[in-house]
């Protein structure tokens, strides 16, 4: 039954990104007018293709560094090396800057909750009334 155990481990490893992404949510300030975003909106904003929300309001994406690898794995199924290479193309052509970085949870949620134009991501379990979930992985639309 060794093959069965190997198969189960392989399946578990395959499912890991999906399980991890199920715990991540994209959030804005509770004061923001934005109620929800589509998957394409989130991709276009975090990959630097758009700097406005669908309604035309300016948006500033923020990378919460402890969850950055999991977030981009969930969002575009890419390793951080690929994300960094993409940003190197934009930065060193002078065409764009990557999302601002935020290291600590308190700093991140303060930043988001006090700035209606900021878009960030958090672990679902850490969401509190100061922020609103606008996109949840697993319910891709």
């Amino acid at each position: 039954m060794r093959w069965l155990r190997t198969l189960l481990i392989a399946l578990l490893l395959t499912l890991t990104p999906a399980l991890a992404s199920a715990n991540l949510v994209v959030v804005v300030s509770a004061d923001s007018q934005v109620q929800s975003l589509s998957y394409d909106d989130v991709v276009n904003i975090f990959m630097g293709r758009l700097s406005t929300l669908p309604g035309g309001e300016p948006v500033v994406p923020v990378d919460y560094m402890p969850l950055r690898a999991s977030f981009y794995k969930a969002l575009v199924n890419r390793e951080l090396a690929d994300i960094n290479a993409w940003w190197a193309r934009l930065v060193f052509s002078g065409r764009g800057s990557p999302p601002r970085k935020s290291e600590g949870f308190d700093e991140t949620i303060e930043l988001i909750s006090h700035n209606p134009g900021v878009l960030g991501y958090l672990d679902k379990s850490s969401v509190d009334p100061r922020v609103r979930v606008v996109y949840e992985f697993g319910g891709r639309s």
């Binding site: 300016p58 500033v60 923020v62 601002r100 930043l111 006090h114 700035n115 134009g117 900021v118």
Partner: peptide, 8 residues
């Protein structure tokens, strides 16, 4: 613009 974010 986001206060406290851009200044850094």
């Amino acid at each position: 613009m986001a206060h406290g974010l851009i200044a850094e």
